[in-house]
C-alpha cells in the first residue's frame, strides 16, 4: 500500500493539532493585548510583562517554585534511578509486587489523595510546613515518574554487558558507572526534566503540603485565576510556556544527537 496516509488521517491530524494548540496560541496572543479586558483586542503592547516583573509576589513565588523544582527533581531522579535499577535488575527481590505497586500507584493517584495523606503525615510527626515539606512531597511523586522513564530504558539494555564487565574485574559499582550509566544517561536526563516540570506544574499537592510563607507559582496563579482572567496571568503563562518549550525542544535535539552518535 503506497498511499496509506488518507484524507481522513490528514483531517484528524490537522483538527487534533488545532485542538491541542489553538487555546495555547490564543493565550499567548492575548498576553500582548493592550486592553485590560482579556477577550477584547486593544492593540499590541508588552506592558503586562513589565507589570509582571514589578510584581514582588509573583517574583518571590517564582523563586520558591524554582528552588523546589531544582532540589526535588535532582533527588527524585537519583532515587528514581535506584528504584528503576532495583525493579528491573532485582526481579526476584522480596516484596517486588508491593514495591512496583508503590511506584505505579502515584502515577495515577488523584492528587487530592496524595496531598491530603502527605499533609496528615507531616502533621502527625510534628513537622513544620513550608518549602521543605513541598520538596519532600515533590520528591515522592517525582521519583515514581523518574523510575518509570529510566526503567523503560533499562529494560532494553542488555544485562550481560554488565556481567561481562564484572567478569573482567569491575566491581558492580564500577560496572554501573562505566557501562550502564552512559547507556541510560538520556533517560536520566529525560527523567529529571519530567520531575522538574511536574514540580513546576503542581498546584494541588503543593497547596496541601505548604505552610505560611511558602507560596509556589501555581498556587499564586490559581488564587489570581479564581478572581478572573487577567492579562498579567497570560503574560506569565506565555513566559512559562516559552521556557518549557525551549527546554523540551533542546533536550529532544540533544537526545537525537546522542542517538545518532
Amino acid at each position: 500500500m503506497t498511499n496509506r496516509f488518507s484524507w481522513f488521517n490528514a483531517t484528524s491530524l490537522t483538527l487534533g493539532m488545532a485542538f491541542l494548540y489553538l487555546p495555547i496560541l490564543i493565550l499567548v496572543i492575548y498576553s500582548f493585548n493592550e486592553s485590560k479586558l482579556v477577550t477584547v483586542w486593544g492593540g499590541f503592547s508588552t506592558k503586562w510583562y513589565g507589570e509582571l516583573f514589578r510584581n514582588e509576589a509573583f517574583l518571590s513565588a517564582a523563586w520558591v517554585t524554582l528552588r523546589v523544582g531544582l532540589i526535588s527533581a535532582t533527588v527524585a531522579t537519583l532515587l528514581g534511578t535506584l528504584a528503576a535499577y532495583a525493579l528491573v535488575r532485582a526481579g526476584m527481590l522480596k516484596g517486588r509486587t508491593l514495591f512496583s505497586g508503590m511506584i505505579y500507584a502515584p502515577l495515577v493517584m488523584p492528587e487530592v489523595i496524595t496531598g491530603l495523606s502527605l499533609l496528615l503525615l507531616f502533621i502527625s510527626i510534628g513537622m513544620d510546613r513550608g518549602i521543605t515539606t513541598i520538596i519532600l512531597a515533590h520528591i515522592t511523586f517525582g521519583m515514581c515518574f523518574a523510575s518509570v522513564v529510566v526503567s523503560s530504558r533499562l529494560v532494553a539494555f542488555d544485562a550481560s554487558l554488565e556481567e561481562a564487565a564484572c567478569d573482567l574485574g569491575c566491581t558492580p559499582v564500577q560496572a554501573f558507572f562505566s557501562v550502564t550509566l552512559p547507556v541510560i544517561a538520556p533517560a536520566i536526563v529525560a527523567a529529571w526534566l519530567l520531575a522538574f516540570t511536574l514540580s513546576l506544574d503542581d498546584l494541588v499537592i503543593a497547596s496541601f503540603t505548604s505552610g505560611p510563607g511558602a507560596t509556589t507559582l501555581p498556587m499564586k496563579i490559581y488564587s489570581q485565576v479564581r478572581l478572573g482572567v487577567t492579562p498579567e496571568i497570560n503574560a506569565l503563562s506565555t513566559l512559562l510556556i516559552g521556557f518549557v518549550s525551549i527546554g523540551v525542544i533542546l533536550a529532544s535535539l540533544a537526545g537525537k544527537r546522542a542517538a545518532v552518535e
Binding site: G16, M17, L20, Y21, P23, I24, I26, L27, Y30, V38, T39, T197, L200, D201, L203, P218, I221, Y222, V225, V229, I233, S237, L240, I241, V244, S245, V248, I249, S252
Partner: peptide, 24 residues
C-alpha cells in the same frame, strides 16, 4: 509525536486557564 507531547509538558493549570477566556 513531539508536537503531541509538547502541550503535556506545559503547565496543566495554564492549559485549563486558557479555556476560560475561550468558553466564557
Amino acid at each position: 509525536v513531539m508536537l503531541v507531547i509538547l502541550p503535556f509538558w506545559t503547565s496543566f493549570l495554564i492549559r485549563v486557564y486558557a479555556w476560560i477566556g475561550i468558553l466564557k
